[in-house]
Design a protein around this nucleic acid. Structure first.
Lengths: 376, 376
DNA sequence: GTCCGAAAAGACAACGTTGTCATGCTCTCC
DNA sequence: GGAGAGCATGACAACGTTGTCTTTTCGGAC
């Protein structure tokens, strides 16, 4: 039911008295929406105490409570003490909607994603959500289409309705120049993970290149000298660095760079199969394959199985991302793991300005059964 | 930095004039938070028009605009037309914070999850987020610990800050009795997927049992009569139904039920390996294994590889969930797929009361290379 | 003692929306 | 033509916070 009418789509259908529809709907109807009110003047403590309740209990003005809550300076120790006690006793929590309305902050951070790898998104999201929790923010998720004008409509609606305090993007969205430009027009603080396109938004860099080098060193160390590479789609700039790093390793080891051994994939299993088939059909068959993500590596592994090649005896395969599928494959996949949760956490820190420096991450090579010494 | 002090933890650190810290933080400082104001009386259309701008342009009161926006009855066609035009021209979008504050609705739905399978969460979340978008809601994600008192604190904070219009849970959270009780105390509309514990909250049932039966029929149809089953942990009530359905199938086919062939797993890869090892060490080795989720099935598959059993010639393996890892395994896993996106979407419909009936889902058996005829 | 400046506390008006009530206006029916 | 019922519209007060400005209080220097 996606409609192009931006206005219509933003409104929720709602039943009005007189419009009888059979099913009542599950959400609390508006009329009973404020249980707090009934409690306000009752002897029982209010269910959802407001700043006024706290102020009354502490015998101060609401402004003083506000100051204490926001850790503003110029509040005497004594009052701060009293207010804090009242807050604790009542279990007061500021109402975010009211804060947003009055103060211009929403305490919402929007997570825009498109990455089809659920474990990648999941890891980042989990780290980000937990850090948000610590900092008093909330994470709103918004899946975005990769292309098309829809994404601008989606973004506009999100921004208009929520006015998030910040937005963050993961690859490949973090290289979507038009999206970044729109975000900058909207003057939304924005942070990206592993972006490579230049943009004014903050970017959290990742050691893609060093990781690519690490894979090269690993395979070369095992004696491989003819190594096929399944490269990312050209749009995936960050992942492209993995290939660069891999080339660095070949150069450093004095190995030749054979363009026939570089096959472009689409970051999915199918394209890994196709690339693997072509690589393994080479007359001088490579003894190892480095795929720039796990899905493609698993495609290569599947081709090896189909061709009855033993892994790692006949062929070593290395992936990238440390997805769950790599762990459960046979043989388990040698791959590179990223500290996803820490990265998600760092993005929130960057947006909230609560971290001291630009974070540094290290990617780790996870050696498992799919890579071994080259056959002699 | 998780602190137990509920009050402290809810507040974001904030820089006040005079407190100089080196890094400015990335979020827009509060003072420049309202760019809309500057535009209000300028000749240019306001960047973020409010209901007042629309009312002024259409020459009506703000209340009338509100009525049009909320599709309330009793507005003349002419005014509705004028207002709609003004809304469109200005690109007006209602401010959710203000709506929440005034109307008692937040247009937020909270998604509580714990399920460690990212593709499961991801699928549900994606369906839910898209449906939210259609209906004008937003999806706030909140990862929850499985046990411990923390989850109540997390829930309380979420509710206090956001007052979400609804909450939804996926397994195994949907069977967390204490959490459900707390939600009901908070009077929060709540919907669950595949819950089996009785609770007053709405539950979206899934055909787990029928799916288990389907797997049994599939394997029995291939000629298997000795089939190992890796069961879910006892806490996963919904998944337990899969085993029931499987038993139904055995009974219907007149096959014996051998308790030695039922091994409890923990829904993860490792436990699948352990259960697989034990099953395949049986003197009369089963010719097929049904694991109640893919991770455990992949564990069994790994054991088969280690024992140099051919799959499916020597052993058929069937999983459940249709995870990406099952697709990329070797051989690709026969499994059961759930319409995750539709389920996520349906939960939102249930919460918003926008669907006519309780939805019915069908699980599909995905036949792939890991299951085949029983050896004679 | 007076005065001054700074610090502490409060009063009050936003913020943008919805709920409630009041006010017309237009029918219909006697 | 007058009463009453309904519809269409608007005025205004919430909602719970924060920003701004004002007032009070408190030290200390003269």
């Amino acid at each position: 039911m996606t409609t192009n009418n931006a206005y219509e789509a933003d409104m929720t259908e709602r039943r009005w008295p007189g419009q009888e529809t059979g099913k009542p709907g599950f959400l609390r109807p508006p009329s009973m929406a404020r249980p707090a009110d009934e409690c306000r003047h009752s002897p029982l403590p209010p269910l959802m105490p407001s700043i006024h309740d706290v102020a009354a209990m502490a015998g101060v003005s609401i402004k003083t409570v506000s100051r204490v809550v926001n850790k503003a300076p110029n509040v005497s120790a004594e009052l701060r003490e009293r207010v804090t006690a009242a807050i604790r006793q009542l279990g007061y929590r500021p109402n975010q909607s009211a804060r947003r309305l009055a103060g211009g902050r929403s305490f919402m951070i929007a997570f825009l994603y498109n990455n089809p790898a659920p474990s990648y998104n999941g890891g980042i999201q989990s780290g980000a959500a937990n850090r948000c929790r610590d900092l008093g923010y909330h994470l709103v998720v918004e899946p975005m289409p990769l292309a098309g004008e829809d994404r601008f409509a989606i973004l506009d609606r999100l921004v208009a309705a929520l006015r998030p305090d910040g937005v963050f993007l993961v690859p490949p969205l973090s290289d979507d120049a038009r999206l970044l430009q729109r975000l900058s027009e909207l003057k939304l603080p924005c942070a990206r993970i592993a972006g490579s396109v230049m943009a004014e938004s903050f970017n959290i860099p990742t050691p893609e290149r060093a990781a690519g080098r690490m894979v090269a060193d690993h395979l070369i160390g095992l004696g491989h000298c003819r190594i096929g590479v399944i490269t990312p789609p050209a749009s995936h700039k960050a992942a492209m660095q993995r290939v660069e790093g891999f080339r660095d390793g070949l150069l450093a080891a004095g190995l030749p760079i054979d363009d026939a051994l570089f096959m472009e994939g689409a970051f999915d299993f199918e394209s890994g199969i196709r690339a693997g088939e072509r690589l393994l059909a080479e007359v001088r068959r490579p003894t190892a394959i480095f795929a720039t993500n796990d899905d493609m590596a698993l495609g290569a592994l599947t081709v090896a199985h189909r061709l009855k090649l033993s892994v790692p005896e006949d062929l070593s395969v290395v992936g990238f991302d440390d997805t769950p599928a790599g762990l459960t494959a046979w043989p388990p996949l040698t791959t590179v793991s990223q500290p996803l949760e820490a990265m998600g956490s760092a993005v929130i820190d960057a947006l909230a300005g609560s971290s001291a420096d630009s974070p540094q991450f290290t990617f780790r090579l996870i050696q498992r059964g799919s890579s071994g010494p080259a056959a002699v």
